[in-house]
Amino acid sequence: MSLTFRDETFRDDFTFRNSPAAIRRFPFPFDRDQYMYSVNMEPHSKGPAGSATEFPIDIDEHYVSEMRERALVLQQDPLRCQSLPHMITAEWDLVELLMTSMADSYPHWFSLSRNGNDWHWINRPLGIDQKFTFGNVATLPYPPMEYITRQCQGDFSLLDQRDDNIWMDAGIATTQADWSLDFDIGMNFMEWHAPVPFAHQMGVFERALKYLLNLQIDKPVRRLNWTMTINPRLDTSPEQYPHWGKDRTQVTAENVGDKVYLRVELQGLWRLPRSNAIVFSIRGYLASLSELATSPKWARRLSRVLKSLPDEIAEYKGLSRHRALSIAWLSQFEDDSPTSPGCGPD
């Protein structure tokens, strides 16, 4: 595979860009011209070649730079990666899931050889060659979850299942949309979703929880979620809000196309076999309005979705200050023509 990894930043000078190919494979989340809240859970099955869902774990051109960004965040704030003591079995489950998946999907970049509990992991893009004993924490340079998630795009949390609920008892979050792992760790499914407007009244979370309690081995599921971010900033945590909050006031009619990003989360859920825990992956994708507008269908549809978004949802997602500017900028692509079915580009 001829993919080259981009050398770019997600802070300060923000040199992050998508190649034309990366734009084409962007997991655009809207399948209609109107906003609809839905849980939209579906089997995490193999998508078309080249798409973000071709493989269970998606590695793309931003991989190396995203891993560098993650290391920077962890250096500043180690609380972004935490695990309660009873989650160690689930951590090892996650090591197995990610290593086997990455090595199966991208054999030219990653390889895993196993002889009983003696494992040998090679990560060529990051220059890592590690022999270790599966199950023995002393044989890795970091705790197991941190070790493997420093090498895998996306945030992860590990959910323990007990008392007919699931509990976020471990995780790593360096690229999150305004939620705090340090605050939410130890919460159950209802509790960590507490700040989401509307959905509780609609019974959405009760249904989703029942579904997840019965999630089965080898039958992962996924859904898409989205928000908007100013600048290609991955770390929009509440911890850092004093630092990035003012970005929202810096959007102008002139810079909106390049400064406002649609941020899509491909969320995956797997049942883990040894721990009976669930891994919840939150893999973020960023594309600026200008990048999205290379497909006029996406520009038209996004503008129509933003217009139909209830104010409470806009406020919750932090869009209030720049929604009108975004819609105005996107309107240059509005010709009142219909959009084609499905989420894909023109």
């Binding site: 009873h86 323990d160 089965q216 009976n276 825990a277």
Partner: peptide
């Protein structure tokens, strides 16, 4: 399918 797991806590 595991409906009788050990409580990790």
């Amino acid at each position: 399918i595991n409906l009788f797991p050990i409580n990790a806590l």
